[in-house]
Nucleic acid binder design. Sequence first.
DNA 1: TAATAAAGGTACAAATAGTTATAAATATGC
DNA 2: GCATATTTATAACTATTTGTACCTTTATTA
Lengths: 224, 224
Amino acid sequence: MKLLVIEDEIQLAQSIISYLSGENYTCEYAGTYQQALAKIEMFEYECILLDIMLPGGDGIRLLEEIKKRDREEGIIIISAKDSYEDKIRGLQTGADDYLAKPFHLPELSARIYAVIRRRKFNNTNIVRQNELTINLLSKTVLVNTTPVILTKKEFDLLLYFIGNKNKVISKNALAEHLSGDIAGMLDDHNFIYAHIKNLKKKLGEAGCANYLKTIYATGYRWEV
Amino acid sequence: MKLLVIEDEIQLAQSIISYLSGENYTCEYAGTYQQALAKIEMFEYECILLDIMLPGGDGIRLLEEIKKRDREEGIIIISAKDSYEDKIRGLQTGADDYLAKPFHLPELSARIYAVIRRRKFNNTNIVRQNELTINLLSKTVLVNTTPVILTKKEFDLLLYFIGNKNKVISKNALAEHLSGDIAGMLDDHNFIYAHIKNLKKKLGEAGCANYLKTIYATGYRWEV
DNA sequence: TAATAAAGGTACAAATAGTTATAAATATGC
DNA sequence: GCATATTTATAACTATTTGTACCTTTATTA
């Protein structure tokens, strides 16, 4: 899961990022309006943390800018002043949640989780697909009643496939999703093959039918 | 699907082309105003990516030049400066979309797909034609309810025929569409025969009537 | 209807893509 | 900081697709 932390106080940003990285989020950072906008154009995020009091007072403008793009990411506003007007204004402009400074990092983490769950998984912790049961909270996978131990990348991969079922996804797009990097993508991302193979093997051994089809010269497709 | 990438930064152009080739687009490249104009005059593209800040000629001028020709291709402007005026000016001159550098390759890919879908496929992911149903996202083909497994080239070919139904298409045009400008300028593209034959065979076996007519000494026409 | 030009069929070669096993690098946990 | 697990890189191998060559069939035209 990728997050963007938009916050001008470097100290705070660092501790947020450090904590959330430990929660298995991939975090990126923007300290100014311009940086943030550039990042948002460049990347897709599951959730954006936005300090509404950016220098230049551009927080709300940035929020409007983000909402205009009509993407799927959640937005959580962080604000120094716990002002009611700010909160109302933020939520009206389309933020999903609001958190006043100072806050506890586990609380932030919980809210991020809640926002993502609400937006991406229809407010449920459990994703079911045929004989698969995926628990987003515990990050565990069952095939019928058999548990399957997946690594983080394998889990991400599986979730991505199920979230994009019946679509062909290119090897490049998968690599991008897993490693989050940009341009200079001239390298062969052959590591994808390894993850795919391991995922298939583990699911197969647990008795899961092979839904993940290779579309030669094109990509992969999770067929259901 | 054929794209023209007009971009003077070779590095960036390369990574764009590398990524989009992986997404199954046939990409061609122009680094200058003159090259771009020459390409556009000679060939047809489904979508043009235009760096508005070209050396030796105004990108906007090129955009006007392209629009003057009144073709069907989509145009996506790529710009280094995320300037509001630039964007407005580009979109007013007839560009379909605008993307500020630096951007994320999957995002570019998604926008190209959106533009092509809007222009060529009535904004739908499903193309229907008589007993054929083509899903652009899953890249699958049904004849009535019978699935037909096509290779990459066969799928492209079919889509191209249906997108140009009732028009005669020369062997050269087909070769160029599938393999790019080089192939289009060479003679003797017997590989087209092979692909046509395989496509016809697969569709026929699935119960599809033969809409693909050979126009002797001229080309092929998908007659409906 | 014969001559000829073009297209179709087929089989095989070459290129490309995908799989797998293993090793090296990196990250994680105790 | 060491041991372990995970991720990424490498390389050999396998499978599939694509391109080519050559031969056969079909259509066109005189």
